[in-house]
Amino acid sequence: MEHTSRALPKIRASHISKVFSNGKERVEALRDFSLEVQEGEFLCIVGPSGCGKSSFLRILAGLLPASSGTIEIQPGEDPGKPLTSMVFQEYAVFPWKTVLENVGFGLQMRGVPKAERLTIAQSWIERVGLSKFIHAYPHQLSGGMKQRVGIARALASDPEILLMDEPLGALDAQTRTLLQEEILRIWEERRKTVVYVTHSIEEAVLLGDRVVLMTAHPGTQKAVFPIPLPRPRDLKVMATAEFGELTYTIWEALRGEVLKAMKLLGET
């Protein structure tokens, strides 16, 4: 790989397409989707359901091959660290592992010695406030607690990039707000590069440095909105007029897409 002194983007996705086909049917999930994410940037992707944002995240994570296009991710200094770690929806924590085992899973797979692994996992469990439940199984936890485990699991493996796939989508409103606050707090400590997929505009504006708006069928990039709200942020920012304006502008742009998506679904 060519090395230049100029700061390269942490992620450069160029002209990504993804087509799913199962014999008869062909579904085009992504078409010519390009995106750059800077080191330490918190990027949010918003779009109607079925716009291929989850597929894009899986292509970034290497879980799904792209049909065409290239992905470049700048590796960090430590080659032992994973490039990406994904936070899925809350039910993706392994029900058969305890909180400690779940959080230490990535480290275990990387072959980190047990003692070190436990120390790291324990510190992350403390940071998400689950010390009391360290040996509990997920069925003993609430949805919000499970997702704290999911976030701790991703952060404990200390990836170059944190990928988050609608992590708060299935939670109730209060829990979601609490966790948004927590994500903000934790992110401010390290300022890791984050690609965050959500269908909530408020969430995207609250968390992100930039918000990418996607269209559906096929998924392409429609617009990019920089979020110039000051950092460090907390929930108070939601009370500002600027927050309201940004949210409304994005909503205006998104509405047409949502309507189009609904119409498409109605027709098929």
Partner: peptide, 23 residues
């Protein structure tokens, strides 16, 4: 999603089987 999680955190082959598929 369990398989995706397992693979994303570096499990493959026998370790994926033992830690994810079997349980």
């Amino acid at each position: 999603v369990y398989l995706e999680a397992g693979r994303n955190y570096g499990a493959s082959g026998f370790r994926l089987f033992y830690h994810v598929i079997l349980p």
